[in-house]
Design a binder for these strands. Structure first.
Length: 371
DNA sequence: CATGAGCGT
């Protein structure tokens, strides 16, 4: 077996690290489990700030196992560290297979208790109780190695008492899936309708008249300012989803007081705010893109690559407004920037060039962070 | 009420 393979076998990933945790501190801590070959805290290439995770490579597999069994969730600089086997295959970590979400956790349940309890159902890759400076946030995650273990945990624990709380245990859903699910649930059952753009000359009475033909209304409200003047929008709550749906279908875009009104499902404040925020951010992104193009951040550059060579390699993908290989005392720092005038060009360049060997090293390309 | 983070020499 080559050295690298040996490293991988006895290599632990250490996550959730406080930014002030040093290699030295990690070395001292993990040496208690057995001889440590090397430690690496991953840092931002530019700022050298800790990215909050590290690798600890043990000489012996058994020592790594011992560290995993005895040191997971230990506190360092006031933060609970999270240990996993180093797993470089991103797919295995991100597919969501075996990942379980738990809510309504008793506040007294911490990382160690959660891990201990759920390990009865199978091997755990990673687990965590979400917390802030006030302590547990009452929910967390257990990522099992197999879906079958996750299914057992859900089957055995969902709806059961865990300490003093009845917990929900279910499959983990990522944010996108969850939002889509919530939206579809809301839109398939809504009874409350939001109406806007009907101007100043509207009151509850008249709004009720307009919308009553779609069904029984439970409440009708034109929102007003402090002087009692209409703010141009309001709500009609129906007693059935069918009536609300029909009102939206037939009234949206119809003219009232000479202008087309908007009629749609009434959203909760948070939902509306999230939607606006997303729209705003999308617009901002497009504005910035239009003005200054898209920057690609090129890492793992061979020392022999300079500005001119880098430009030449990327020039076929579109118009490049700027190229820069970062240098120190005339020596490449191994990373740089290429700025394209459109996102299409940048995307194409990234797709084609990521992993491409230049000189003796494989390029690592990412979108540069804006600030 | 609640759906992380995220992998190098």
């Amino acid at each position: 077996m080559d050295i690298e393979a040996k490293y991988r076998m006895a290599s632990l990933y250490v996550g959730d690290l406080h930014a002030d945790v040093t290699e030295d501190l990690l070395f001292k801590k993990f040496s208690a489990a057995g001889p440590v070959l090397s430690i690496r805290i991953c840092r931002d290439v530019v700022t050298r700030r800790s990215l909050g995770y590290a690798y600890v490579n043990f000489l012996k597999l058994a020592d790594a196992q011992k560290a995993l069994d005895t040191m997971n969730f230990d506190m360092m600089k006031g933060k609970s560290i999270r240990l996993m086997w180093s797993q470089r295959d991103a797919h295995l970590r991100k597919s969501g297979v075996g990942n379980v979400f738990i809510k309504n956790l008793d506040k007294s349940i911490d990382n160690k208790i959660l891990h201990e309890h759920f390990s009865a159902f199978g091997k755990i890759l990673s687990s965590k109780v979400m917390s802030d400076d006030q302590g547990s946030k009452g929910y967390g995650f257990v990522h099992f190695q197999n879906q079958s273990a996750a299914d057992r945990a859900i089957e055995e624990m969902n709806g059961k008492l865990f300490k003093d709380c009845r917990v929900f245990v279910g499959r983990f859903k990522n944010r996108k899936d969850r939002e889509a699910e919530l939206r579809s649930k809301a839109s398939s059952a809504f009874t409350n309708v939001y109406i806007k753009n009907f101007g100043d000359h509207m009151d509850d009475e008249r709004l009720k008249e307009v919308f009553s033909k779609y069904g029984n209304t439970l409440s009708v409200k034109v929102m007003t300012d402090s002087s009692g003047k209409s703010k141009g929008f309001g709500f009609v709550s129906f007693d059935s989803h069918e009536a609300a749906k029909k009102a939206v279908e037939e009234m949206n875009g119809k003219a009232i007081n000479g202008q087309p009104i908007f009629v749609g499902r009434a959203q909760k404040k948070g939902e509306r705010q999230a939607e606006l925020k997303q729209m705003f951010e999308q617009m901002k992104k497009e504005r910035i893109r239009g003005r200054q193009g898209v920057k690609l951040y090129i890492k793992n550059l061979d020392d022999t690559i300079d500005d001119e060579k880098l430009r030449k390699e990327f020039s076929s993908f579109g118009s490049i407004s700027r190229v820069k290989v970062m240098q120190e005392e005339g020596q490449s720092k191994g990373f740089g920037l290429v700025c394209f005038s459109s996102s299409e060009e940048a995307t194409k360049a990234m797709a084609e060039m990521n992993g491409r060997i230049l000189g003796s090293k494989a390029l690592n390309i990412a979108l540069a962070q804006r600030h």
